[in-house]
Design a protein around this nucleic acid. Structure first.
Lengths: 225, 225
DNA sequence: GTTCGTAATATGGTATACCAACATACAGTC
DNA sequence: GACTGTATGTTGGTATACCATATTACGAAC
């Protein structure tokens, strides 16, 4: 009978207003609808999001902890600025964590993981064709989620997700440059290939090359403002 | 005249109630006054902390983002449980980030950094003599803060601080075991020594050994409950 | 013994009120 | 005309009251 109750169980959380509002505001920041340094006036956000001040304040605390929002004393929350020094550090950390995860994933990957990885890669291709910040964010998140969870690196995945939120505002800018549109999926494919071949060394190397490339593009965008 | 205005400038933020409450509650969790799985009832916390519900809710959002609190749907926030799988991952990530930071710090350290490092090490010794969770937390935080900020790894320092909050509940337990009290400061001294000698390789090695040791102690505590 | 209803508790969400801090503009005084 | 003081509006911080809902326990009815 356990099977039957499992099938009937409602898995989706009933999405609190707060969770929806966090997603909405995070999406707006990532999509570039708020610039770094823009003030986030509480009462204005209440109108824009259609929720009360309590919810807005809790949402701001959440995004503050994610590093997307900074609150200056007596002046209120503003969208965090992103400079090259921060972005470089973020790419450095991602390099460490993702290389390790890809290697472990390559070591552990079975047929099911490989199938999920190929599906994520296909979704990534269609997202790159669509070329909207939201679609790209969702697709890359899906791709790495397979790698990190298959490797058993839950905690690292939390961290990388948070870091990703902070730099994926770059993606909106990066979409303007043409080179990324080709090099991105190619690198991802190389990573997936190495994992499907159960080759940890090659997987880690592919990740490092991918991030070196992405960091280089970010540097060009940010270093001379 | 610029000097005079600089001297008069007020640097300390006037500490919002929220910030105080976050520190207080985080401290209580780290000190072991709440066990993993304990429910954090909002209105009870209002009484215990002496603040309003708005503040408590925002505090909970902050600690939730730090990983110290988890909120289950329809049941409210509880203190996060810490199992060996999570702790092992945390030590793995710290090993990556701290080894890199120690190496960079050793590469960059000048006389001022070395002086601050020695001061932090001295503070650490007195904290180990005192042997309270709060003192140890503050002292180890101070020690690593010198290393990370001197290395210019601000972002990694944010992450490590957050991870530290999650595992420093172990320190309260670890204080019971006698071996840690000797091996801890000895390892820290080795790390400081390598940095003061501007030897990146030795610094990274010392960090890895320290964390290997700390993880081993944690494993003994957590693996068989 | 099972089932149903109800009350207590806790939560999510909302609205509102109050206060302090800051900025701006406008007047008043020398 | 320059400085000073005040009025006002906006904003963040805090507190409180209220409602709807979910969970749980308890007790009554069958």
């Amino acid at each position: 009978m356990n099977n039957a109750t499992d099938d009937l169980r409602i898995h989706e959380a009933p999405a609190t207003l707060r969770a929806l509002a966090v997603d909405r505001l995070r999406g707006a920041i990532i999509a570039g609808r708020f610039q770094g340094g823009d003030r986030l006036v509480e009462r204005t956000l209440c109108d824009q999001l259609g929720v009360s001040r309590s919810v807005v304040r809790e949402v701001i605390r959440t995004l503050e902890a994610e590093g997307l929002v900074e609150t200056q004393a007596r002046s209120g929350p503003v969208v965090a600025r992103l400079d090259w020094s921060q972005a470089r550090q973020i790419y450095d950390i991602r390099r460490l964590l993702e290389a390790e995860a890809a290697a472990d994933c390559a070591f552990l990957a079975d047929a099911a993981v490989k199938a999920r990885l190929r599906a994520a890669l296909a979704a990534l291709d269609t997202a790159f064709a669509e070329a909207t910040p939201q679609a790209l964010y969702a697709a890359t998140t899906g791709f790495y989620e397979v790698i990190f969870t298959a490797a058993g690196h839950d905690v690292a995945w939390e961290i990388v997700q948070r870091l990703n939120g902070r730099i994926s505002r770059l993606r909106a800018m990066t979409l303007a440059t043409k080179d990324r549109r080709t090099s991105g999926p190619a690198h991802m494919a190389r990573i997936a290939e190495a994992i499907c071949a159960n080759d940890p060394v090659a997987a880690a190397k592919a990740v490092r090359e991918h991030l070196k490339d992405a960091a280089e593009i970010a540097r060009k965008l940010l270093e001379t403002p």
